[in-house]
Amino acid sequence: METNPERRIFLKGSIALSVLGTAIGTGLLTPRAVLAAWPADAFAAKKVPDAMKALAGSDQMSDSSEIKIKAPDIAENGAVVPVTVSSGIDGIESISIIAVNNPAPLIASFNLGEGAEGFVSTRIKMGKTGDVVAVVKAGGKLYSAKKEVKVTIGGCGG
């Protein structure tokens, strides 16, 4: 069967639009006093640099060997990918988890409070194979590390 590239582009465009539509419809894009801290722009961003700019004010990240990501090499089910990030960097303010190839790459951002160690573990959805990036903010700077996870069944289509 022949695939029509224009049709592909059209489909992509309409998916993006409908996502935006629901975001507005459910009040995601309207500011809310209760959730003032929730960075809607960062989570809605389609590209990693845009997400990081909205979240941390910068997309300048330096690779760090002091960040460890524990995630499976191959995820059989993209809907549930366990990810653990740990880091020994001093003065960590936040840890963010990004799945580069997801429609909205920024998945979660953890702001560490008093006494919290550089360790978070959760389970994320991944639409397709790609890098999982952990971004650690410490002393006003961003450090990152990545790990590729191969996804055999996507978690975004359902």
Binding site: A37, W38, P39, F43, A79, V80, V81, P82, T84, A99, N102, A104, L106, I107, A108, S109, F110, N111, L112, G113, E114, G115, A116, E117, F119, V120, S121, T122, R123, I124, K125, G155
Partner: peptide, 21 residues
């Protein structure tokens, strides 16, 4: 001790683990 900001990219029935002193 911890504030987690999440999107819909976190799996159904979310699991969270962290450590503090």
């Amino acid at each position: 001790r911890l504030t987690a900001l999440w999107s819909g990219g976190v799996s159904k029935n979310p699991y969270l683990s962290f450590k503090f002193k």
